[in-house]
Every structure is written in C-alpha cells, then in structure tokens.
Design a protein around this nucleic acid. Structure first.
Length: 926
RNA sequence: GCCGAAGUGGCGGAAUUGGCAGACGCGCCGGAUUCAAAAUCCGGUUCCCGUUAAGGGAGUAUGGGUUCGAGUCCCAUCUUCGGUACCA
C-alpha cells in the first residue's frame, strides 16, 4: 500500500497519509480536551440542551490486548455519540475498565507477577489501542474497578445493602433502622414473637436475617481446583464457567444478596425497556416466576406433614406418589428411625451419593429416574388415598420445598419415574378436542376423574379447576396459593484474592460489625503468594494476610458506639465476586472524580434521567451482569441514592465478529498459519490434505485473531472503523475478511480525491464552480438516508449510500466546496480523522466534531418524473415514464398505451389494472 | 428435549406497511493507463437457454397455500446459530 514509489501520486490517500493525519489530529483533540463534556454547573455547560448518555460495556483488559472483535460495539456507539453531538446534544460517552476477577488472578498465578501489575499493564495496552481508533470518549472520566477511589464506593454501596431490609408491604428496600423502629412500635410483627421481650442476641439475629446483604448458610458450588465458591450462574453443566473444572456442592456460611426480594420488580420493570426481545425473555425466564399452590400431604402414622409446591393444583386427583429430594430434612429422621418397608441402608447410600454427586453426574442420567422408596405413605388430600413417598434426585432441594406431588399422567418426569418404578398412572385432564396428545399430556384441558366426597372439579377447565382447588385447600387449611421463582439469592463471597474486600469485621464470637464510612476503602492487602488454596474445604486466600486479618475494632474503623475500639476483631477474608464492580459503574461515570459521594447527585440526575439512552454490549451479558446491575440500581433507588428505577433504558447487542478457520475431514480445526491456499482449495501444510473453510470464533489457539493495530498500520483507523461497520448489520455476526477491507479504503481515497489533486495535493479549482443540480439532489438524498439510518444503528446501509454519492459525484466531476463540506460532516461520525482534515482544508475553523449536522430539503428528494415498471399478470413487461404526481388515470393510460405493453396485451382482455402510486402498475389480463 | 433467531449470487450483505430481488462492497471478466507490473479509472458480472444479439425461462433452504402480486404473510419440513436443561 505504499504510495511514495510513484512520484506523480504523492498525495493519494493511503496508509502513510492516514496514519500521519490521524495521529496529528488525535494529539490535537487530546491537547484541546475536545471530548471532555463537563457536568451541570460547570462553566460553559448548557443544561438546556438535551442529553445523550451512550455507554459501552466496559472491557475486561486481558494481557492479550484487543482484537478486531472488541471495537465493533465501540465503533457503533462512537458513531451515534458523534452524530448526537453534532445534532446539539450534550453527550456522555465514557470508558473504563472492569479489572477485578478471576482471569487476571489466574494469569498472575501462571506468570508469578502480581495481578495489579499485569492488570495495569493490560489497561495501558487497551487504552492505547482504543485511543488509536479515534473514539470520542471523555477520558477524563476513566476509572478502573480496582482503583481504591472506586472500590471504596463499591464497598460503601455494599454497606448500604447491609444496612437495609426489604419491606414486603411497600415492596421496596428501606434502611434497617425502619425495621427496628417498626418492630419496636409493633407496626411490624416479628415471626419470632414479641420484639421487646426478645433477648439482645435474638434481636441481632433477627435483624441480621433481614438484611439485603446477609450472611447465609447455603449449599454452595465449591470448586476445589479454583479454590473458590461460584454463583449458580457461574456453573454450567456442573463445571465452572471459567476453566471448566468440577464443582461440588457443600454447605457454607457466605455473604448473600437478597435479590429474590426484588424478583417481582425485576420482572415487571422489564416492560417498557427498549431491549432486544431475546434478552427480555432470557431475563424473564431466569427470574422464572410461576404461580401455583403449596399443598400439605399428611404422613400416615405420623404427626408430620409434607409441604409441596405445584403449578398444577388442578391435577391433585392424579397424584399417585410424593417425591422428596435426597437433601430433604425429613430424610435424616427416616434414617434415624426407619419405618417398616424402608431399606434404611439403601436410603442412606442413595441420599449420601446424591448429595455428593456433582450436578453433572446427576444430570447425566436425567432420563434414568433413579430413586428409593421411603417406606412411608402420605394421604392424598383430595382422594383420601394412601400414596407412597419416594426419594429421588430428580427433585431438587433448592426449589420449592424440595418435595413434589407427582402426577405421572400429566408430567413427563413423573411419568418416566412411575413407569420405571411401577407406580399407578391416573389420568385427570382431558385435552381439548383436535389436540394431538402424546402418552403424557401436560397441557391445559378439562378435569376428569376428579371427584370425591371432599372436592369435585370434574368438567372444569384447567384454569377454573386450579382456582377451585386452591380455594378448597385454603378453606380446609391444606394449602394456599403460592408464587415461586427460579431466581435464588445471590451468593456474593469468593475465596479468591483479586477482588474487593468486604468492609466488615467479626468479633471472637463471630458477630459481624460494619466498617465505618470514614475508614473506607478497606484496601486489599498485598500478598506475596496468591496461589489459591486448593483444598476440599473452602479457605479464603486473604486468610494468609494475617497482619491485615487480625486487628482491632478501632483500627478497622468500626463505630466505637457499636464496639469498643480495643476489641480484637478479624476482618472478613472473603472478597467480592468479579461482578461487583460492574454493578454500578454506569452511575460513577456521571462524576468519576467525585470524592465526597459515590456520585454527584446533580450530575446523576442530569445524565441518568430516564436511564442511559443507549447501552451497547455483548449478548453474553444478557442475564447476569444486566440482572445484577438492575438489582443494585433498584436498591440504590429505593434508598434515595439515585434518581431512576432502571439504569439501562435502551440496550443493544453488537454481533460477534467471527473469523475463518480450517477444518479437517474429522472436524478438528487447524491453526490458520498451517494452511495454504491453492486455487480454490485450502491445504494443510503439514499433511497436504485438503481442508474445509468454516466460520469460527477468533481464538488464540486457532491463530485466526486479527489485531486492530495491524489493520490500522496498513489502512488507517478510519478504514478500520468503516470496514467494521460496513460488514453487515451491527447486531449480526459476520466473518472478518481481510480481502474486503480495501473496498472501504478505496471509498476514502475517492473522498480524498474529490477534494484535492493527487499529484499536487492542491484543492481542486473546480470546487468553486457553480453547483450541479444532480449532485445537489443526490446529496440531499444521502443526507436524508444517513440521518435516518444512524439512529437505527443501520450503519452498513448508511455507508452504502455515502459510497453511492461519492461515486456519482466523482463521475459528474462537479462538486462545490459547500457540498463537500456538508458531505464530510455526514461522514465525520464514521471516519472522524479524514473528514476533520478535509474540513480544515476547506477553510473551516475548529473541529468537525463540533460542527452542525447537515440538513436536507424534502423537496429535493422528489423527482420531476418517475419511471414505473409495468407488470402483466405479475411479471414485469415494460416501463413507462410519468410526471411526478400524475393521476392514476394518467398512469394507467400511459401504461396501456405504451407500445411494448400494447403489443403484449393483444388478444387479451384487461380485467383489472392495479396501480400502486409511485411504485408499480400491474395489469390483470387473460 | 424445550424456547428464540436466522437461511437471498462465488463471498459479506441490500430490499418501509406484500409492489422492479440481488443496492453497496469484495472477488472475477474485459478495457484504459503503463516498457511492464502494482495502484487507479471505465465497463460487465444471479443462474440456464440463445454462437453474438434481440429475446426467453428459472430463481430468495425445501414442499404446499393465500394474493393481481410473496424474500416479506400462513401451514409443514430441513439446516445453522444462540439460550436453557429435571424449576414441579
């Protein structure tokens, strides 16, 4: 791509020219703080202007640096940010770093270098790469989640949650003091008896059990290899999401978030968000609200009863057995004193095995439906029949009550179990007519065989039967309506090193006390050795920092009114998970440098009003990050700390950038550097065998990663930006194809040539000539198209229309300076550097980023005459030209009288003529 | 298994509410320029038939349907990708 070899075309736009002018302008923009936006109250900040907060999901800076897939979304957000700014918005467009978390720590363990060092280095690399692409980020707002000035406030927010409870009546979070007050005045009734008569210890425990951030004993996913517990969301098929190591389940005391209290609001508030449908659905399914009933089953020959949850109370008459999860508390009793018919040895073996089995094994025989009979029977409350109680691992302890009523005729899992263990199957729902039915019908229908002395629901539809059954259950104190959620409380402790420490300490009796605000941040201590403690028992890594760990209440900053300063205390040795920092970063950007509060209120109200206007990021965060961040935001909103209920008003997922990869006949993949092309065929260098070219993710192992630095060196950043946006729709994934880049590069060359002479570098004299009407019309059409496409993020078609304009303007050879000026403004959001250069060459002062967005005249879009296709029986047979605004009669006349059409119509009878104004004419004739 | 999205030339992809399928780019073919090449510029490029041309036919995963007219709407099937996995 060298352009200096040829004397005559020294001034052609090429890599050297692009790189020179791009670096020059970037330096100038940085020196002038072009992209610093300021806040309300700052000098020169015009609050009357509308705001546009456009946020990218901040990256996790890895040692490998950026590849070309990373900037796709960033370019997309940069274009609309620049566009909005030119339209007169105050635009907030920040960037920062999500820098705590497992990958950095794993990398540090491998290299032996402290994660702070490697992470800071990775951040510098990322920043440098991003800056070279020419984004309009306000870098003055940059921060990393590992900055103590930032995680101070992460800890502060956690303390807010620690110091809050969820009022179920008001359906909102409130300070914990309101709970204490309410209990004291009797406004709130404690389930544990009269508040004022409770012991101090009991009161404390009650309060602790109502905090939004609470210490809970949970069966956790412990990963011995990673040396940490993981959230349910971080475990996939029984293996850790990161690393793919086995995960076992064991009980542990951990910090939890009461996210389930917000389940309803997290679900309901999805409505009204401008998000991709698929993501809304995924969130809703993750929350998994279901409506049904709790039903009590009395155990025969016992005073105990069993509570089960069902979504199909209408099938109560079809319950032929009850199943308990292997972890169900009743099983301990069973093993201790086994009833007749109970093989306690088998039961014990089954329960123990199921408990210790990783979920992956448990699921491996999902179809198998193993189980043991308990020896006990329960009474079906509707029929009075005795039904057996079984223990089986297809019932999970973590959902409902860890026990189910089994309806084998109408639930496929119960059906499989009943078949395997010879349990009767009783049909109680008749499908609606004309409905295809498998041997186990689980849809709604009409109740049958559902009558007894106690209750009758025969003939009722499923919905009616459910209502009647629930009413009956409630009247007879046998159960009640119940709503359940799949969502569980959020496990928030990790045993790893590289995370935010919890601002909390324990006394010798294990009571916990918050660190006072003045003592924040609780700084992560330095460790010489952060290799995880690989063990059967969870052991936090910070336990090794003994000097830090053992301290006094005063030293730690605990309020002396709560605990005397000289009390020896132990710090919490767990750290927060990688998600913590990204739960509120969008708020911090409003005033990144504020050191008196987690965010400046005025700035927050201005920028976050109605939420972030556009949030762009990968679909892989559809559930976890977005759910967690919404939860934190709602908590802060309830507590009056932020001004809106939902942080992300509009969400957009950019597509995945894929790359070519090469596959052997056995589907194994070959690294790209071991492949050579011979004609149409791709050959593996080592074996000489032919390979198939397929599309795959970019990955180091496949050696199909493309580095943006290389692309910029060869074509310039403007070309990279244009190419990535021109590949296809922003939301679609597309394969990177180096060969195609030259297309948009040529486009920029033509833009350059439109302005100046390639031989002399001088501006074209013709720029002064009178304007060409066709070029002017084409320009208006292009302005209209681009203005319409950018808000839709339809950048590929916007670029196509600009290419069309340049092509037609080039061939006409008649472009004025004024037209060129308007055109480069149009192109500026996409290619900010070359357009800035031309803008300046045209004699404009200042920066194109601050220029006004060009406007178009709708009248210029209307042509004088139209060429319309004429169809006969739906096939295009000719075309006629009619003046714009011609009446339907005139158009029909023109079509029928057209000689070519006339000839084809010979011998046919015209039945009908359909005219779609300005579109088409169709003649129905036979 | 269930849920969701998608399937258009050699390739990436265009195509308001049903209205000229293949915009734009790549690649390829031809031409100009050049001693030559690269670069650039101009023209062509869905497939099939037609020596060329005029012209004709087929065509948006597959098979049906609705309509004057279907890439777009309806039904069934296939394939790919994403999510989810005993949630009672």
């Amino acid at each position: 791509m060298s352009c200096n070899t040829e004397q005559t075309e020294t001034h052609r736009y090429c890599a050297e020219v692009a790189n020179e002018l791009e670096s020059r302008w970037q330096a100038k923009w940085a020196a002038d703080d072009l992209n610093s936006v300021g806040n309300p109250g700052d000098e020169g900040f015009d609050v009357s202007k509308p705001k546009f907060y456009c946020l990218d999901m901040f990256p996790y800076p890895s040692g490998a640096g950026l590849h070309v897939g990373h900037p796709v979304g960033y370019i997309g957000s940069d274009i609309i940010s620049r566009f909005k700014r030119m339209q007169g918005f105050n635009v907030l467009h920040p960037m920062g770093w999500d820098a705590f978390g497992l990958p950095a720590e794993q990398y540090a363990i491998e290299t032996g270098v402290h994660p702070a060092t490697t992470t800071r280095k990775a951040i510098d690399t990322f920043r440098g790469q991003l800056q070279r692409i020419g984004f309009s980020y306000d870098w003055s707002r940059e921060f990393a989640t590992i900055d103590p000035e930032y995680y101070k406030w992460t800890q502060w927010i956690w303390l807010k949650a620690y110091d809050a409870w969820f009022d179920p009546k008001a359906k909102k979070a409130k300070p914990i003091a309101t709970l204490v007050d309410g209990l004291h005045t009797g406004e709130i009734c404690s389930e544990d008896g009269n508040w004022d008569e409770m012991s101090e210890a009991k009161k404390t425990s009650y309060i602790n059990n109502h905090r939004l951030a609470y210490l809970g004993e949970q069966v956790v996913n412990w990963c011995p290899k990673l040396g940490t517990v993981l959230a349910n969301e971080e475990v996939i098929d029984g293996l850790s999401e990161r690393g793919g190591f086995p995960v076992v389940r064991r009980p542990l005391r951990q910090w939890m978030f009461r996210i389930t209290a917000f389940a309803d609001r997290l679900l309901e508030d999805l409505e009204g968000l401008d998000w991709p449908q698929s993501t809304l659905r995924m969130q809703a399914e993750w929350i998994g609200r279901s409506e049904g009933a709790d039903v009590d089953f009395a155990i025969i020959d016992s005073d105990d009863s069993l509570c089960v949850y069902t979504t199909r109370p209408d099938t109560l008459f079809g319950v032929t057995f009850v199943v308990l999860a292997p972890e169900h508390p009743l099983i301990k009793t069973l093993i201790a004193s086994p009833p007749d018919g109970c093989d306690s040895t088998a039961l014990k073996a089954y329960a123990t095995e199921a408990k210790n089995r990783a979920d992956v094994d448990r699921m491996a025989d999902a179809k198998g439906k193993s189980g043991v009979f308990s020896g006990l029977y329960a009474t079906n409350p509707a029929t009075g029949n005795a039904i057996p109680i079984w223990i089986a691992d297809y019932v999970l302890m973590g959902y409902g009550h860890g026990a189910i009523m089994a309806v084998p005729a109408h639930d496929s899992r119960d059906h499989a179990f009943a078949k395997a263990h010879n349990i009767p199957i009783v049909k109680v729902v008749e499908p609606n007519k004309n409905e295809k039915v498998a041997d186990c019908f689980s849809g709604p229908g009409v109740a049958v065989n559902s009558s007894s002395d106690l209750l009758s629901i025969d003939g009722l539809t499923t919905a009616e039967a459910q209502q009647k059954t629930i009413r009956w259950l409630e009247e007879n104190k046998l159960g009640s309506a119940k709503t359940n959620y799949r969502l569980r409380d959020w496990l928030f402790s990790r045993q790893r090193y590289w995370g935010e420490p919890f601002p909390i300490v324990f006394d010798s009796e294990g009571n916990h006390y918050p660190v006072g605000e003045a003592a924040l941040p609780v700084v992560l201590p330095n460790l010489d050795n952060y290799t995880p403690v690989e063990s059967k028992d969870p052991t936090p890594l910070l336990g090794k920092a003994t000097d830090w760990l053992h301290t006094t209440a005063g030293e730690a900053g605990v309020d002396p009114d709560i605990l005397p300063p000289d009390t020896p205390v132990t710090r919490e040795a767990n750290t927060m998970p990688g998600w913590a920092g990204s739960c509120w970063y969008e708020v911090r950007y409003c005033s990144s440098n504020c050191d008196t509060r987690f965010v400046d209120s005025e700035a927050e109200q201005y920028w976050m009003g109605n939420g972030i206007d556009l949030y762009i990021g990968g679909a892989e965060h559809a559930v976890l990050h977005l759910l967690y961040a919404r939860f934190w935001h709602k908590m802060l909103f309830d507590l009056g700390e932020v001004s809106c209920n939902e942080p992300f008003q509009k969400l957009f997922h950019q597509g995945l950038l894929t790359s070519f990869a090469f596959q052997r006949a056995n589907k194994s993949l070959v690294p790209t550097d071991k492949v050579s092309q011979q004609g149409e065929a791709f050959i593996e260098t080592d074996t000489g065998k032919e390979l198939e070219r397929v599309i795959a993710k970019m990955s180091k192992s496949l050696k199909n990663v493309v580095n943006p630095d290389d692309v910029i060196a060869e074509y310039g950043a403007d070309t990279l930006r244009l190419y990535e946006m021109y590949m296809g729709p922003l939301e679609a994934s597309a394969p990177w194809n180096t060969r195609d880049i030259v297309g948009v590069h040529r486009f920029l060359q033509r833009v350059w040539r439109l302005c100046s002479d390639e031989h002399t570098g001088e501006m074209h004299a013709s720029l002064q000539e009178p304007q060409d009407e066709h070029v002017e019309r084409a320009l208006h059409a292009t302005i209209a198209k681009v203005t319409e496409d950018i808000p839709k993020l339809a950048y590929n078609t916007a670029i196509a229309s600009m290419i069309e304009f340049v092509n037609s303007a080039t061939s006409s050879g008649m472009v004025t300076a004024d037209q060129l000026d308007r055109f480069v403004r149009l192109l500026a959001p996409f290619a900010p550097h070359i357009t800035q250069e031309i803008y300046s060459k045209l004699g404009q002062q200042g920066y194109i980023a601050d220029a006004q967005w060009p406007t178009f005249d709708p009248e210029q879009l209307v042509a004088d005459s139209l060429e319309l296709p004429v169809q006969i029986m739906g096939k295009v047979r000719g075309r006629v030209t009619v003046p714009a605004g011609a009446s339907n009669e005139d158009v029909e006349k023109a079509a029928i009288e057209d000689p070519a059409i006339c000839a084809l119509l010979e011998g046919l009878v015209i039945r009908k003529v359909i005219i779609v104004p300005n579109k088409i004419i169709n003649i129905v004739a036979n």
